[in-house]
Structure formats: structure tokens, C-alpha cells
């Protein structure tokens, strides 16, 4: 399945990625499984997505937790806890 990924704030800056198109193997994927897959790209990815820093995720503009399922065509985003206002 194909998904579109976005990264924001500290993640975008540290990973040096703002967006990418990704093709995942045809099997069920949760946010946690996707994070684990991306973490294999290297130490920085592991630290940013699976490390001590809190990461929040959204699917199609809705905040979700680690167990949320990803479907073909979804827009997935990873970002730090928000600090607006």
C-alpha cells in the first residue's frame, strides 16, 4: 500500500525530511509498526521515532495512538507534542 508521510518541527529538522511517498508491504500496518520500520533507517530515525522523546501521530489529520491502523492512500504525520497558543 502507498501512503504519504509528513514530519513537523523537531522531527522535520532532525530527520531532514518534510514529506515523502512510501510504499509499504501489503500487510496490516499500525502506527507503531510503521515507526519501527522507519527506525531501521538509522540511529537518528530510531532516536526520533522510538526513543525517549514523545512523538505524536496523525492519520488523515486526526490525532491517533500507536495502535491505529494505516490504510492505502492515508496521509500519516509524525510530530512532537504541540506548543501553540
Amino acid at each position: 500500500m502507498k501512503i504519504k508521510l509528513f514530519y513537523f518541527a523537531r522531527l522535520k529538522e532532525t530527520l531532514n525530511y518534510s514529506t515523502e511517498d512510501l510504499t509499504l508491504p501489503d500487510e496490516p500496518y499500525t502506527i507503531l509498526k510503521l515507526k519501527a520500520l522507519l527506525a531501521k533507517r538509522g540511529d537518528t530515525w530510531g532516536q526520533m521515532l522510538m526513543g525517549k522523546l514523545k512523538v505524536r501521530a496523525a492519520i488523515n489529520h486526526e490525532l491517533v495512538d500507536d495502535h491505529a491502523s494505516i490504510a492505502d492512500g492515508d496521509e500519516v504525520a509524525f510530530f512532537p507534542p504541540v506548543t501553540g497558543g
Partner: peptide, 9 residues
């Protein structure tokens, strides 16, 4: 807004 809206300072 402080906890749910995706803004970062």
C-alpha cells in the same frame, strides 16, 4: 488549542 492543535514554537 494548547494541547490538540498542531502548532510548534
Amino acid at each position: 488549542l494548547k494541547t490538540d492543535a498542531p502548532f510548534w514554537k
